[in-house]
């Protein structure tokens, strides 16, 4: 009984919380003069798929989405690979140098991309990477890497050192103990942090718009800004575009959430 009461409360919280998300979907289905109706209409009076039809017919959304997925997928992998070593050593080794690294990692994410992108452009030109998705992946990773390092560090810090020590007594090297013992125990952290890194990268806009000039390479975020014009923004179509942009990700995350939870109930660290 009490469990179902909690379910009801949970549903109310989620429902309340998701209202803005609902509003995005509802707006995508409204005809344009209903978007600003007074009083506002909670449920579209005459729902129409016109905006979606527009998106699929006039905008190359499949291409945009594919680019977004390639970019954020690559950023996620690169970030987790680069972050692992740094996070682990920061979790296990205390020294002034490690402090310096940690402070540097924190500082590296302060400046907003619009200020960073000009000098970064120079770097990528030296590397001959302008107009390649690789440049965007490398640039976006500078944004996600500090986050991943800091959060993975806490994940590793939560794994008892005793377990590694035990493995080392059994003859494993430090590195092998990390790979065999700590890494598997940190999998929840990897899933959650990887998911968040993916989302961070999925929403990136400034780097792709600055480093890529071919529309065929641009991710969906750049397409979305196409609806925000000099003097007119086409919110109806923009909301439809955004809906198409986020829905697959929301679905994947709902499914993923289940996996995370099964990891939790299995007793993560035992």
């Amino acid at each position: 009984m009490r469990r179902w009461l909690l379910t009801a409360i949970g549903a109310v919280i989620a429902g309340f919380y998701l209202f803005p998300v609902y509003w995005m979907y509802a707006s995508a289905l409204k005809v344009s003069d209903e978007l600003n109706a007074n009083p506002p209409t909670l449920i579209p009076h005459a729902p129409t798929l016109a905006a979606f039809r527009w998106i699929f017919e006039r905008e190359n959304i499949a291409q945009f989405m594919a680019n977004s997925l390639v970019l954020s997928g690559s950023v996620t992998i690169l970030t987790l690979v680069l972050a692992t070593g740094a996070a682990y050593s920061l979790a296990r080794k205390k020294s002034v140098w490690m402090d310096v690294v940690l402070i540097g990692v924190m500082l590296s994410q302060v400046l907003p991309p619009p200020l960073l992108v000009t000098p970064m452009f120079v770097i990528f030109r030296q590397l001959g990477l302008i107009n390649t998705q690789l440049a965007v992946i490398l640039a976006t990773t500078t944004k996600t890497l500090p986050f991943a390092i800091v959060m993975l560090r806490t994940t590793f810090a939560q794994v008892p050192v005793d377990l590694e020590d035990a493995a080392r007594v059994d003859g494993s090297s430090r590195t092998m103990a990390f790979l065999r013992i700590t890494l598997p125990l940190a999998r929840i952290g990897y899933i959650v942090i990887g998911a968040l890194v993916f989302l961070l990268a999925y929403g990136e806009f400034v780097y792709p718009v600055s480093l890529l000039s071919k529309k065929a390479l641009q991710p969906a975020t750049v397409g979305l800004y196409g609806f925000v014009g000099a003097d007119y923004s086409d919110w109806g179509n923009a909301m439809a575009f955004a809906s198409v942009f986020v829905t697959p990700v929301i679905i994947v995350f709902m499914l993923l959430q289940r996996r995370i939870v099964s990891g939790l109930t299995a007793g993560a660290l035992k």
């Binding site: 718009v209 071919k214 750049v222 800004y225 196409g226 000099a230």
Partner: peptide, 8 residues
């Protein structure tokens, strides 16, 4: 051609 959003 390259499209640049107006705000950019």
């Amino acid at each position: 051609q390259k499209f640049v959003p107006f705000g950019q």
